[in-house]
Every structure is written in structure tokens, then in C-alpha cells.
Design a protein around this nucleic acid. Structure first.
Lengths: 331, 331
DNA sequence: TTGAAAGCGCTAACAA
DNA sequence: TTGTTAGCGCTTTCAA
């Protein structure tokens, strides 16, 4: 391995001068600089980032915690974060947590030992006491957890209202809601948005809310049961698109025509919703933008170590596809 | 930050002794050990991995290159690699290359500066000369590129043969092939497998092979044209599932009934193929196994620095779903 | 069984 | 404008 000493020797200068050249910092005579640059090129010298990290106490690495990269909502988020990392010369570390507090804590420890500069976290399980000892900057993404942190998310409640109102507008008379896992903050927000719209309706009953755990198979199962038990349901607001696909599958197997006899709307706007038949109407989040914004905020935080917490809330957008249709207007 | 010096001072020993305790290496009196352990716990000491890396010249990090994590084939691979990393206490770095040689070279450089211990690469663009200067162990995954490296892949040619023969068995009289991008090694292998089965048939013509670039939209476009121009086609072997979904969509829009009038078989076995309607028959790869095996091989390579190259070829499996059906047996 | 000290490759304070 | 040197926190040789 070629070190800064080798370069210094080769160019006939001190290591300090070489350091000045490679960091473009401090006074260096232009002739000297040229000699150094030539030496660097001749020797194909590359500075050792580990040594730099040791001195600086920073590693130029950023980590992203997601429950599971195999869940199709997360790759776009990961991609966005990585792209921003790239621009700013950070290395991107990906951590799948499986919503396990143990894994999260293990990662938190390991990453700090590696002097990771900052972490973007999608979590439903972390609590205040776990984060308190963490000294690196953290951004919460997609959902909050019991800690006050700078956050990037969407207005879930409003999006859920919009979804439910849209179903009403189509003429749905009985709208059920498939919700996410209890501990996720956005589960509650989306459920509230749904309730805002329907809770005072005559037909409404709590039985129309069931949890599908943000999981396709689980959702498909509970939706099948729900639709069998309640044939009066003609609208379904499903709290994410993965479960929305489960809803379409469930209806298909039950022989219920979507959208003629049942309108289904999801939440997220992942591309999976475009591949089903019918394609899935949804409340789309600006996923890529959220990921990249979170990364940018984190990098700002790393640089300025600003202790002020701020939440950036993006707005969602209704994307009309084939799984919804006005009641009584079959084709 | 608590350092090894602090622990040493607190325990009344030297840093060498503390080092011996935390690494469980060398002689340490059991009383001394207890004192040190207590000091570590009291002070909540965590060794600094950056300092360790600097000394060892290794970082306990592994990187994975994929074209784009948003392509649904790659998350499972990434997940597998990360799981294995976890078991062996490696940190997992994800790099999206977009099939760009510039990005790949930039990553290769950056990662070496960070003393990354090894790299798993899915690439169609890297060449011998780019890899020659790389000193860290590398494993090729999913496809080969012009370098002799230890490799984990499936027997694409055989899988392609199996797919095409399956279509023949169903009674297809005219089978087209949608291939991947020219530069990917598995594109050629799958195309060869297809040709093995059909090239001597009377009906066969090169016009039945078109490239869809492993991309849904591109594939959908070319397949639409192909089916319009050649209504005689009754079987489609599509070189990956993403394009297979494009094929189903194209047929749907053209009003061609799948599987009654056209059988479609994909390749990969990603779960996306289960969400379409009809679901996609496919040649499934053991994706998770391949990822985890690649990671295990890499870690072996890191430890033993064995220079011997070996290729592990997994076998594929036909998964019959709804997009294929015997000719003349409509339901 | 333990400790002193060199050194991994780099940066930055200080001196010249 | 340049060089000397003290660390960053750790591991490991060598000597005691």
C-alpha cells in the first residue's frame, strides 16, 4: 500500500505538505504542488480513509434502518438515500431490522463503534431510552417513534381522509378499513383519517376495521374473512399498497368484481400497484423525495450539528387507477 | 468517548492488558480479568472499530454492487447478503451501479480507500483491466463479466431449455423469446437455451427473438409490436419475470387471452409474478440461497485468501402458475 | 502474567 | 511556504 510517506519521500517534501495538497488546505508553493501531484499520480497514491476517520472521529458513512428491504416500499427509499450519499461522498450502509428491537440496538452499537456519521431510521419499536445514549445524528423517516427527532413523513391522516372521501364520492355506502400493525405511528394516523370521515355515519361499526399488519398474505386472509362476513362492504381503504394487492387477490378469489362491486384504494404509490389487474388506485407518497430529503437533512445535521428538531411533512396525491369506479356505473 | 486508556487507568492495569481481555487473547490473570471487565462495564467502554481497522488494514465491511435495488430481483439478494454479514459481524454496504462503468469504478476506488474487506458484484460492464488493480477479494454474482472470478449463478442455459421445452410440451407451435440486454452474460445463456430447443424447428425464425432489456416498460412495448406482427405466436419465453409481467400486460391490452391463446413463462421466480392476473409461470432461481452463498464464499475468501477460483452453479425450478396452459384446453 | 512502546496512515498545531 | 511532531485508539512485539 502506498502511503503519504511514500509520496512525501518521492516528491522530496514532508508529509504535511502532501497532506496540504491532497486536502487543498494551507499554503503550498505551486511548484511544490506540481511535484506532489506528479508523485501522487506516479505512485497511484490513494489516501487511506480509515486513518482519516480515526483522526476526525467521522467515517463518511450513513446508515439506513428499514424493517425489510424485500418489502417493496423500501427499495425506492434506499435508492434515494444512496443517491444523496453518493453526491456527498458518503458510503451507504443498509440495515434490515425486521422490526426487532434487539437487531436495532445491535446495529446502533455496531455503527457507533464504526464512527458512522448519521442514521436514518424507519422504526416502530425504538423508544426514547434506546436513543438517549446515541450520540450520532438521527433522522426518523416514514414514521415516528417515541422520541423527538427531526422527521420526514407524509400527512397520513389527511391522505387517509382523502382516500376515504374519494370512496364516498364514488358512492360507496359501506367502507371498511384494513389497517397496519398497532405499533407503527402511521397505522394510527391513517386509521384516524378514515375515522374522521366515517365515524358519524349510520352504517359505521368498528367491525369494519381490521388489521392486516402491512403484509400481503395476512391482509389477504383477513380481507377474505371480512368480505365473506360483510357482503355489504362496497369500498375498501387499505392502509398500504402491499395489502391493497392482497385485497385485489382476495376479491378475485371470492369472485367479487373489482371495481364494479367493490372499490379498493391503497396507500403508498409503489409500482407494484400498477402490475395487478385491475391496477390499484392509491394515495401516492413522494417516496423518492422523502428518502432524498431525509438524507439531505441528515447531512446538514452532521455538518452543523444543529440541535433543533424539525418535521417535514410531504403531501400525498390521489392516483386513480382501475380498482375504483363510481357505484352503479358498471362497464 | 471512553477509550482503552480510560479503562486501563480505571482498572489499574496497562492498555495491553485491557486489549488482551477484550480480544480474549494472551495470558491474563483471572483476578485482573475481572477487574478489567468491571471497568469496561462501569465505563460502558466500546472499542473503536476505526482504530482497529487502521491497525489491521481491514474494516469488517462487505459491499454489494447491484444495478438498481429498485429492480425487484435484487432486494432478496441484498437481504441474503446482509443476513450473512450480520452473522459474521460484517457491515453491509449497498451500491447501485446503474450498469454504469463510471459508477462501478468510483465505488471500487472509494471502497478500497475504506479498506472494505470484500465485494460481491452483479455486473455486465466491468472488464478485466478494471479489476486487475483491485486487491480485495471479489465474488461475481448472478452473471459473469470478462474476468475470472469465483462465481455464484444458476445454470441459465438449462433453465431456458426447460422453459422452452415446457412450452412445447403444452403444445405451443410457435414460441418467441424476449431476451435481456446484450452485454449481460445470462442474456446470452438464456437465449442459447431457447435456441437449443427451437432452432431446428420448421417454424423458427430469428424474428421471434427480440430484446426487452430486462425492463418492464421496454418489454411491454416490444412485445406489443411482436404480437401484433406475429399473431401466430402462441408461446412466449421471457428472459426475466419483470419482462414477463410486461408480457402479461401487453397481452391484456391487445385482448389476447393468457393462457388460453398465449402461454407465457418467465425466469427468476420473484414474488412480483404472483401478484399479476394471471400469475406468472416461471423458472425460479434460488435467489436467497445464491445471495447467502455468495456472501459465505466471500467471507471464506477474506479469511483464507484462497486464490483458487470456483464457480457454484445452482439449479432452477419450474414453477407452474396461471400464465401457461396446454393448447386447445381452454377452460 | 504484565507493561512499555512502536506503529497502523493521517491531520493539524506549532515552529522555523 | 515548509517541516517536525504529537496524537487519533488500537494491537502486538518484546522485555521484564
Amino acid at each position: 500500500m502506498v502511503t503519504i510517506r511514500d509520496v512525501a519521500r518521492f516528491a522530496g517534501v514532508s508529509v504535511a505538505t502532501v497532506s496540504r495538497v491532497i486536502n487543498n488546505k494551507g499554503y503550498v508553493n505551486s511548484d511544490t504542488r506540481i511535484r506532489v501531484v506528479q508523485a501522487i499520480n506516479q505512485l497511484k497514491y490513494r489516501p487511506n480513509d480509515v486513518a482519516r476517520s480515526l483522526f476526525k472521529g467521522k467515517s463518511k458513512m450513513i446508515a439506513l434502518f428499514v424493517p425489510d428491504i424485500m418489502n417493496p416500499f423500501f427499495p425506492e427509499l434506499a435508492r434515494a438515500v444512496e443517491d444523496v450519499c453518493n453526491v456527498h461522498h458518503y458510503t451507504f450502509v443498509l440495515c434490515n431490522t425486521d422490526n426487532s428491537i434487539e437487531k436495532e440496538l445491535t446495529y446502533l452499537n455496531a455503527l457507533q463503534q464504526k464512527s458512522v456519521d448519521g442514521i436514518i431510521i424507519v422504526s416502530s419499536t425504538l423508544k426514547k431510552e434506546h436513543i438517549e445514549e446515541v450520540t450520532v445524528p438521527i433522522i426518523a423517516l416514514d414514521r415516528t417513534f417515541g422520541v423527538e427527532l427531526s422527521t420526514v413523513k407524509v400527512n397520513n391522516r389527511e391522505g387517509a381522509r382523502e382516500a376515504t372521501e374519494y370512496l364516498k364520492l364514488l358512492g360507496c355506502q359501506c367502507i371498511a378499513h384494513i389497517s397496519g400493525p398497532k405499533n407503527a405511528s402511521n397505522t394510527e394516523e391513517r386509521k384516524q383519517g378514515y375515522l374522521d370521515v366515517v365515524k358519524n355515519d349510520d352504517w359505521f361499526s368498528c367491525n369494519y376495521i381490521v388489521s392486516g399488519n402491512y403484509n400481503l398474505q395476512v391482509a389477504k386472509g383477513v380481507i377474505t374473512k371480512l368480505l365473506e362476513r360483510h357482503p355489504e362492504i362496497d369500498g375498501l381503504f387499505v392502509a398500504n399498497d402491499v395489502m391493497g394487492v392482497g385485497a385485489i387477490k382476495a376479491a378475485e378469489e371470492l369472485g367479487i368484481n373489482v371495481p364494479n362491486n367493490l372499490s379498493i384504494i391503497g396507500f403508498d404509490g409503489i409500482s407494484l400497484g400498477e402490475t395487478t389487474s385491475p391496477t390499484l388506485t392509491t394515495i401516492a407518497q413522494p417516496i423518492y423525495k422523502m428518502g432524498s430529503r431525509a438524507a439531505e437533512m441528515l447531512i446538514e445535521l452532521i455538518i452543523n450539528n444543529d440541535s433543533q428538531k424539525k418535521t417535514e411533512e410531504f403531501s400525498v396525491q390521489l392516483v386513480e387507477r382501475q380498482s375504483t369506479r363510481p357505484r352503479g356505473r358498471e362497464e
